[in-house]
Design a binder for these strands. Sequence first.
DNA 1: CCCAACTTTTGACAAAAGTCAAAAAATCAT
DNA 2: ATGATTTTTTGACTTTTGTCAAAAGTTGGG
Lengths: 197, 197
Amino acid sequence: MPNETYPAHYQGIFAVFNSIYPLSEEIKVAIIKNSEVVGVKRKTILLNAGDHSNTIYFIVNGGARVYYLDKEGKETNTWFLFENELLISVYGFFTGQPSFEYIETLEDSTLIAVKRDKLDEMYLQFMEFNYSGRKLTEYYYIRNEEQTNNLRMLSAKQRYDQLMLHNPKLFNRVSLGHIASYLGISQETLSRIRKQK
Amino acid sequence: MPNETYPAHYQGIFAVFNSIYPLSEEIKVAIIKNSEVVGVKRKTILLNAGDHSNTIYFIVNGGARVYYLDKEGKETNTWFLFENELLISVYGFFTGQPSFEYIETLEDSTLIAVKRDKLDEMYLQFMEFNYSGRKLTEYYYIRNEEQTNNLRMLSAKQRYDQLMLHNPKLFNRVSLGHIASYLGISQETLSRIRKQK
DNA sequence: CCCAACTTTTGACAAAAGTCAAAAAATCAT
DNA sequence: ATGATTTTTTGACTTTTGTCAAAAGTTGGG
């Protein structure tokens, strides 16, 4: 059955899952039935700290950031995510505990939203869906670990260079202030690092 | 069938998996068939940088560290793992790429070793096994993310305090030099932080 | 028990990064 | 376009953390 029989917005998410483990028609139908396509404006808060994170988003287009507030109330960004990526607050979504993180769109975005209870149903109904879920979790885990290792071992300048090398496009879509906290440095230091190049 | 019919060393690993998703007798038998119980001395290298990481270990007793060498050749520890925990080099094991990390036992240890191809076979043969695999990956992911956030946002002293609060027993089993690099600080700074308390 | 090896602490100094305040530049809505 | 916001840069200064070298303390094997 050709893919065109499914709504166009689902092309991306099906492709991502399908590249890991073949998605049966049943699962595709279930995904469509258990999800909702939503369009949101830039700067929309998708998750507030304190709330329960019960939705996972697949970004069809647009982008978002995950951040939290440090003791002085300053925002610290932990992730930036864009088209064809999954968007959650990892801690809140995985543990079911109230979130300490916020999720906010960076741009006008189209998202596929799946509620956690629906996702859990699908994981229990289609055991092979856990195969893809596991692989995707592994993939994001590795991305997180890279970040950990960079923070542990590299200087501010080296972390900046790494990001420039591996994700230069980020600088076109995210303000330097946001990038600074992601790199674990002050905005002023980031500015100075960029200047001395 | 009572658990005592299985080798005593497998109690812990079965309990860990069983608490996530019921382990069928078939999977238990497969795990035993596809694994090996190994006893190793303290300071045994289980994985060398450059090698392919093709074994996952469950620690029956003992402990190990995962570390790598920075540009100056200094060791940086990324994980400490002990009894009833899974032991891998995340990047190497998940990606299949040659490892940049080393794994070394910290104490004489008993381990259950499963080769990656055997694990993959089990994941394909028993789809519900992916459910447990996914949940375990999520669990270790969260632990890693905590570490990332601490490194991004907390001062050396605050990171030390966090570790003391959440994992004080670590200090009984791991030298301060090893803990320093795990916290992303120099040994001297760690020593000074501890003194000023 | 004692020596050798390893681990931890200390001191003096240097380098990295943060803070605060203000100016400059860029962006956005009207 | 233009004034108002937001973002980025700059300067002066402070704090944090690192580095190097040496001393002190600890541990384990013979």
